Computed example of a mutant assay.
Amino acid sequence: MLAVGTRKGLFLARSRGGGPFEVEPVRFSTIAVHSVAVDTRRDTPRLLAGIEYGHFGPSVMWSDDLGETWHEAGTPPVAFPERTGAALARVWQLQPSPTEPDVVWAGAEPAALFRSEDRGETYSLVEGLWDHPTRPQWQPGNGGLCLHTIVPHPDDPKSIAIAASAVGFFRSDDGGLTWYPSNRNIRAPFLPEGAQYPEWGQCVHKVAHHPARPERLYLQHHFGVYRSDDFGASWTDIGSGLPSDFGFPIAVHPDDPDTLWVFPLHGDVDRTPVGHRYQVFRSEDAGSTWQGHSTGLPEGPVHAAVLRDAMAAGPAGVFFGTRDGEVYGSRDDGETWTQIARHLPDVLCVRAAVL
């Protein structure tokens, strides 16, 4: 199954027996779907969708019948305690825990982490991150003050990491009670000389991780692409072989922690595909070298970007969606591509799962 969240609804696509994907009619028509999760931890999969009603605001819906019917908690499922003085702007990320069967994490705007213990139906604020002493100095990126990535350790429920823009990468070793920034060796070149490696205040665009090698992380930054081999304690620049190290999404191969994909853009003002061609760049050696692949993609000129959550890799292949409503997939690790959908609204997020 492919789940595609757009500016005006959720689109599900299914492939049977390795055949072509068939796109189903829109769910949540006219409603923005900023985040999607396909929770396969039980025999009955659960779909989760972080939606934004134009009038009523953001919420989280769930479905236990593959999108046929949807449910919402009787009270707002994601809400800030009154003492924070904050109002929920958007749910940017929904992430089932790999170690706790009923736990789902939600990343929100303004940058906050929420935890659910009922499979994503209701959530409570992780106050340790909200009360971090650096919070008063946090600044939003162009997309807002958004917590867009959640990385729970696949073996240790006490270890979890998040990324927020433009805040940086933060870790917790005690299940979210306390947090510390972890951005060592990440460069922010817009800052003055001598101050270009700040402890926090980094514009991280997306982080990808590999469950078979928990310490291996990949990070797409506003000004570079990085790898960590110690769960974010330190980072190494791996963007030198790319035509541009600016971009938003980053994805890692489900079976090979050394294989990853990025989608370079002209940065950071233009934000269109490099050369005005759709090209997905793949590394098979953990970022030491890169190769661009575009077979099956439009030759151009094209001008639409791929957003931070609009690329996904899984057992069924690697997929991405564009801001002009096109969705592409590859079943050969990005060597060749096939168009799955076109003329959709602006694609905000993509998730893939084998059910």
Rank of each mutant, 00 (worst) to 15 (best):
P133Y: 01
V306I: 10
P198N: 07
I162K: 03
E117R: 09
E199C: 08
P133L: 05
A166P: 12
G334Y: 01
Y218K: 01
F169A: 10
R184F: 05
H293Y: 15
P81S: 01
T149M: 06
W179M: 15
R83W: 02
P133N: 03
F320S: 13
A32D: 08
V33H: 00
R271K: 10
S172R: 11
V36I: 10
P152D: 10
A112N: 07
G232S: 02
R119K: 15
H221C: 02
N185S: 07
Q279L: 05
P301V: 14
A161E: 13
G247S: 08
T84S: 07
H303G: 13
P101Y: 03
E335V: 11
L12D: 05
H71D: 10
A352N: 08
W200Y: 09
G300E: 05
W290H: 06
A106V: 08
K8Y: 12
D102I: 04
G144Q: 04
I250W: 04
W70K: 00
S165G: 13
P192R: 00
H55D: 14
R323H: 12
A161T: 13
S35P: 06
S228N: 00
G317N: 05
S294T: 09
D229P: 00
L12C: 12
H343C: 05
T272S: 14
V274A: 03
E284S: 12
Q95M: 02
G329E: 08
P25H: 09
S35D: 03
P25I: 13
S240V: 13
E284F: 08
V167C: 09
R184P: 08
V26M: 09
M61C: 13
G5A: 11
P45V: 10
G321H: 11
H293P: 06
D229Q: 02
P98W: 04
P257Q: 09
R42G: 10
T178Q: 09
W105L: 10
Q339I: 11
F281N: 06
V4Q: 01
H266E: 15
L219M: 04
D285K: 06
E100H: 00
T75D: 04
C349N: 05
D270G: 10
D346H: 13
V306S: 06
R46N: 09
A108C: 12
P25E: 12
H34V: 11
P140H: 07
A13L: 12
G107W: 06
F281C: 12
L2K: 04
V327T: 11
T149W: 02
T84D: 04
P110G: 05
T322F: 14
A304V: 02
R14K: 15
A87R: 06
G54T: 05
P98Y: 00
S283T: 15
T122D: 09
T338P: 13
F223D: 01
I162W: 11
P192Y: 03
W235T: 07
S29V: 15
P81N: 00
D156M: 08
Q196M: 14
R216D: 13
Y226W: 06
E335H: 02
V318H: 01
D102R: 03
L94N: 01
D324A: 14
G334F: 02
A87G: 08
G241S: 12
G239F: 01
H276D: 14
L47P: 08
G144E: 10
G141E: 04
A304F: 00
E121Y: 00
E326Y: 09
V33C: 08
H205V: 01
L344W: 09
V91K: 07
G141M: 06
